[in-house]
Write a protein that binds this DNA or RNA. Structure first.
Length: 690
RNA sequence: GCGGAUGUGGCGAAACUGGCAGACGCGCGGGAUUUAGGUUCCCGUUCCCGAAAGGGAGUGUAGGUUCAAGUCCUAUCAUCCGCACCA
């Protein structure tokens, strides 16, 4: 609710209004009765509200503000390849799917005995001679005039059922209107139906049904006894007979029974027919998207006020820029009754029209909070700028984001809105980047009893309870150790106990050896010292590399566990200076995973300051090196012996040693050596036969 | 239906570049400490045969490439996730 951030949200809104990217229209919108507000399409999950997962969303017709994300649909899709490799495939697939670009054609069917036209969208205009009926969505504008009065109650029921996204709607239901449509290519008359599976919200709200080549149409026409007529012949086969068809044949082939188009390959026919529609004025090639404009009006208090004043004379008038920000009144009553609480604040609502000065009313809807999250990370670069959302130069220095982290649940919410917002800002000259983030990492969730654990639900293992039992460090170590962070992890008490045991093991080792540790002592290194130093440097290297590259902290923690196991094994023989190095580095290595217990260890060791402010421990490749290379000796790819040799041992030496090996000899008796493959420091594979 | 991902011990997983499958942990079995339980410490634990040494099999399934495949290729099955009468 920072008014300065609201100011820039409102500024963006006015910019978009200027450019036609923000607009107001009356539309059927999603309504969550629990929230008492409208929701964007992206915020409806399985027909329910994204925040109330068991509350079905209703449809209401309301005047609402929209942002024209569809103006960027093509670019949002076309730029997805730029994100490949950096973003998870899953997220990109979801976005591609959500944008739902579909190439085809729109053509007008005439209505027999009327001047009306029914425009249909199809991806298969090449099959139009096989269209045996036209089906309207129950909400189609022509339904009222074409269908008989007697059918109106059934149509109303169909409409309601669609609005509820009724699961029973898997059954196809049709109502014949009795009217006839005229095929613009052939002049053929076909019946006009109303179908529950045709959606007003996609394409034109009307389809041509080609039952021979579309499975849905096939099922519908079969059910209602409507003619089925194949018009596509497979390139290497014959045209099917309608009577023998048991399912639709949706593939491309050669167009047949289609007048002048007969004999033309499907793809060519689509082009030719779209061109003809355009030439003769009854249609054109068309692209349809599944994505809809972003409805941003919310009937909530908590959000950026939409900077508009409704004047009876001048209509919707933008608040002049110098009057921004429109601030939220602080003295309000939250009723939860489904209208913005701002409506009940007269001082907020009653204003003068900026254009004519007459009495006017302020818009009381606020913006979707996803507006705020669409560009906050740009503001981070210049958070106190009072003259602009930010200085483009500062953003040019930092952007694009190298690594963004978030949950996959935002794949088609925040992550598509923020891509849109970036492109919009680019087009008004605020940034030069096309995409906000080069790389995206989607972390997994903590699962409990098979369901996702989240604060929006009740099934959380309470953090307090977990902290009481084990401490916060244990919770963190358990989660990081259970699986790599992109995977979901199931919370288990026994797993948490394991993490707790491990931290206890570390703590006991450090505290009981603190007094023995002495960096300055000069003593001879023991055998245990050598092993531990090697392991220590290997561990630092391993953990460092996990942080720098793949973030698989489960293997980092496993490596530290291995180190601790070795410390326990050699504990009695470790000398003071080695202990000093081990204690310090072990503490620092675990610091990011277990900040509390490591801080306690740090202080127990008499060290000053905070662990997380220390320099990350260094490692030495020389010290991390194994004493010798363990080389595996294989016969025909099966391991038969292992030897240890100095690093860099010559191939010829390896071969000699392998052939003389006691365990190898018996396998060579009476056999012919075909080939010897040698990988220095790794293996010798002797290929024999006979 | 379309799209994406994943299949490795009893379980979570590891194997990063084609080169020792199962690191590490959970669980389980055994031992030490303890009056006992718990804690802690140690040992064992992929499966099959074997007292052991050792041998055989093994990364969903079936093929292929290679001296060598969990890893690459082809087909197939299963599971999970997303979208879905999208025309």
């Amino acid at each position: 609710c920072d008014p300065e951030y609201y100011r820039w949200n409102q500024w963006f809104f006015l910019k978009m209004l200027e450019k036609g990217l923000a607009y107001r229209k009356k539309a059927m919108v999603n309504w969550c009765p629990e929230c008492g507000t409208v929701l964007a399409n992206e915020q409806v999950v399985d027909g329910c509200c994204w925040r109330h997962e068991s509350t079905p969303v209703e449809q209401r017709e309301l005047d609402q503000w929209f942002l024209r994300i569809t103006a960027y649909a093509d670019e949002l899709l076309a730029d997805i390849p730029k994100l490949e490799g950096g973003w998870p495939d899953r997220v990109l697939a979801m976005q591609r799917n959500w944008i739902g670009r579909s190439e085809g054609a729109e053509v007008d069917f005439g209505v027999e005995g009327s001047r009306e036209k029914i425009r249909v969208f199809t991806t298969r205009v090449d099959t139009i001679h096989g269209a045996t009926c036209v089906i309207l969505a129950p909400g189609h504008p022509l339904v009222k005039s074409l269908a008989p009065a007697a059918a109106q109650p059934a149509i109303k029921a169909m409409l309601d059922s669609q609005a509820r996204k009724d699961p029973a709607d898997v059954e196809k239901v049709g109502i014949a209107t009795g009217a006839q449509a005229v095929n613009p290519y052939s002049g053929e008359k076909v019946p006009i139906w109303i179908g529950n599976f045709v959606l007003m919200g996609y394409g034109t709200g009307a389809i041509m049904a080609v039952p021979a080549h579309d499975q849905r149409d096939f099922e519908f026409c079969k059910q209602y006894g409507i003619a089925i007529r194949p018009v596509i012949r497979p390139a290497d086969g014959r045209l099917s007979d309608a009577a023998e068809l048991r399912e639709a044949l949706p593939d491309d082939g050669i167009v047949e029974n289609s007048g002048e188009y007969s004999g033309v390959p499907s793809a060519d026919a689509r082009t030719m027919m779209s061109e003809r529609a355009k030439r003769q004025g009854f249609g054109e090639a068309a692209i349809t998207y599944r994505i809809k404009d972003w409805g941003v009006s919310r009937q909530r208090y908590w959000g950026t006020p939409i900077p508009i004043i409704h004047c009876p004379v001048d209509g919707a008038v933008p608040v002049p820029e110098d009057q921004l920000p429109v601030e939220l009144p602080l003295d309000i009553k939250i009723t939860g009754k489904g209208r913005s609480p701002l409506e009940n604040v007269p001082e907020f609502v009653n204003v003068k029209c900026p254009r004519c000065g007459g009495a006017a009313k302020r818009e009381t809807d606020t913006m979707d909070t996803f507006v705020d999250s669409s560009w906050y990370f740009y503001r981070y670069c210049d958070p106190r700028n009072a003259a602009a959302p930010y200085d483009p130069k500062k953003v040019a220095y930092w952007f694009p984001i190298d690594q963004y982290i978030g949950g996959v649940e935002h794949a088609i919410l925040h992550l598509i809105y923020s891509r849109f917002w970036t492109k919009m800002m680019r087009d008004i000259g605020l940034t030069t980047v096309d995409e906000p983030a080069k790389r995206l990492f989607t972390q997994g969730m903590v699962i409990k009893d098979g369901a996702k654990m989240s604060k929006n639900k009740g099934n959380v293992v309470s953090a307090d309870e977990m902290i009481d039992r084990f401490g916060a460090d244990t919770g963190r170590v358990f989660e990081l150790f259970a699986a790599p962070p992109e995977k979901d992890v199931e919370w288990t008490d026994s797993g948490a106990e394991g993490a707790y045991r491990f931290l206890g093991r570390v703590y006991r080792f450090v505290t009981r050896n603190t007094d023995r540790a002495d960096q300055a002592a000069t003593v001879h290194q023991s055998e245990a010292d050598k092993k531990v130093i090697r392991k220590l440097h290997q561990t630092v290297r391993k953990v460092t590399s996990d942080f720098e590259t793949r973030w698989h902290f489960n293997t980092s923690i496993a490596a530290v566990m291995e180190l601790v196991n070795e410390l326990y094994a050699g504990e009695a023989d470790l000398t003071p200076p080695v202990l000093a190095e081990v204690l310090e580095k072990l503490t620092l290595l675990l610091g990011p995973f277990a900040p509390y217990v490591t801080q306690e260890m740090w202080e127990h060791m008499g060290r000053a300051g905070l662990v997380f402010k220390q320099t990350w421990p260094a490692y030495d490749d020389e010290l991390a090196r194994e004493e010798g290379a363990e080389v595996v000796i294989q016969i025909n790819g099966k391991i038969r012996s292992k030897i240890t040799v100095p690093f860099g041992t010559e191939r010829i030496v390896l071969e000699q040693v392998a052939l003389r090996d006691d365990k190898i000899q018996p396998f060579l008796e009476g056999k012919q050596i075909v080939k010897i493959v040698i990988v220095p420091d790794k293996l010798v594979n002797i290929v024999v036969k006979g």
